[in-house]
Design a protein around this nucleic acid. Structure first.
Length: 199
DNA sequence: AGCACGATTAACT
DNA sequence: GTTAATCGTGCTC
């Protein structure tokens, strides 16, 4: 049950990985304690031709992770203050990743609360930078292997999400990205989350 | 060496 | 709805 997803899960087309990550459990082992939650929102970033993906710059120090083997974390820094968590997908050599945009917190909630105060519980992990803060994920987690037994970050099986429970739409925050990349329906989220939030 | 900007968030009018 | 915060990255000179 509580086994880490294998590398073959990540070594698939990125859109499938992004879709299938919904309902899975993201786990962070923090000083021996589990902080975990169900993944409820993801986005796919696929290849050098995707002008919304960092890989549009080609192979650089920053993007090297995405050219590497699947099943590793790509963690980057943006806006001068925020960290973002991604999982490398596709076979080695094809640069792509899935951004984890939101989780529903379920384990280690006291630790999350301490890190996210004074915000309200509803917004503790409903954004990509928020969940990184909640789980204590920063540059140290760039390049970590999600499939390695001793790692402190991984994904486990969870509850399957039926097709009718999934909302698909354009990715968020790509303000100056040209079409068609700006509108590609590469964002996946669990529907129940929509009611309280903007789609 | 300098510069514009970003896969965001929280606080404010 | 608007905007400040804040710095690594990639591009230009």
């Amino acid at each position: 049950m509580n086994e880490r997803l294998s590398r073959t899960f990540y070594a698939r087309p990125t859109l499938l990985v992004a879709r299938d990550l919904l309902g899975k459990r993201l786990v962070r082992l923090d000083e021996g304690r589990r902080i975990a939650g169900t993944i409820v929102e993801t986005e796919a970033y696929i290849g050098e031709e995707d002008l919304g993906c960092h890989c549009r710059a080609g192979l650089t120090r920053r993007t090297a992770m995405m050219y590497g083997p699947p099943g590793h974390a790509y963690v980057y820094f943006t806006y001068g203050m925020h960290w973002m968590l991604n999982f490398v997908t596709e076979p080695q050599g094809k640069p792509a990743a899935v951004l984890i945009r939101a989780i529903r917190a379920e384990e280690g909630v006291e630790t999350i609360a301490a890190r996210r105060k004074p915000q309200k519980a509803e917004v503790w992990t409903d954004g990509p930078a928020k969940l990184c803060q909640a789980l204590g994920i920063d540059r140290r987690f760039n390049s970590v292997d999600l499939c390695q037994a001793e790692g402190e970050l991984w994904v486990e099986e969870g509850r399957p999400i039926a097709e009718e429970g999934v909302t698909i739409g354009p990715r968020v925050g790509l303000t100056s990205v040209p079409e068609p990349w700006k509108s590609m329906p590469w964002r996946f989220l669990v529907k129940e989350l929509q009611s309280g939030k903007q789609g």
